[in-house]
Simulated assay, not measured.
Amino acid sequence: MSLDPRGPRFSAALTTIVFVAVLLTGSGWLALAQAVIFAIGAYDPRLTPYGLLYRFLVAPRLGPPTDREDAAPVRFAQAVGLVFTLVTVVGYLAGSPVLGVVGASFALVAAFLNAVFGLCLGCEAYLLIRRLRAA
């Protein structure tokens, strides 16, 4: 499966907004909603609500993508995002806001870097792990 690389960046932009809201409100429930989105994305990024918005509302207004990217690194990145978001959820809902802030902050930085600069930290980690396994 391959993806239009603009879709994950669009998703990362929406995720950035969600994590800013999580940090401003301290809402573990909002973080939990984002965790569900990451869980879906770890299975297939095209099936997340953000992926569906991109595919049906944004992509038709853009030209066709000039290239495609493998979905495996994106799925791995979604799984990493899920882990950090679950830390956030546990922190906020268990009464440890410091843990929630730390988890949300790491997730926010990663989403922001992807949205603004196209640097997917989870994707880079996936590729590094593959290279290390091949060596």
Rank of each mutant, 00 (worst) to 15 (best):
F10K: 03
A12G: 11
A125T: 14
R46P: 14
A111N: 08
T66I: 13
V116L: 09
I17R: 07
V58L: 06
R133V: 10
R55T: 15
V83Y: 02
V89I: 03
V58F: 01
R55A: 09
V89H: 11
R75H: 10
T15H: 07
G26P: 11
R61I: 00
F38I: 02
V74K: 12
A72C: 06
Y92A: 05
R130H: 06
G81T: 09
Y43N: 08
F38R: 05
L32H: 04
G26R: 06
V101H: 05
L99V: 08
T48H: 12
T48I: 12
L128Q: 10
A72P: 06
Y43L: 15
V109I: 04
Y50L: 15
L113H: 03
R9T: 15
L3A: 08
Y54D: 12
C120M: 06
V90C: 03
G122D: 07
L127W: 01
A104I: 05
A35N: 14
R130S: 09
A35I: 05
A125L: 12
A79S: 04
I40G: 08
G103S: 14
A42L: 09
Y92T: 09
F117Y: 15
P45C: 06
D70W: 06
I40V: 13
L93R: 03
A39N: 08
Y126A: 00
M1Y: 14
D4K: 00
V58D: 11
L132S: 10
F76K: 00
P60R: 14
Y126S: 05
R9C: 00
P45H: 12
F19D: 08
F106Y: 07
F19K: 06
L57I: 14
V20N: 01
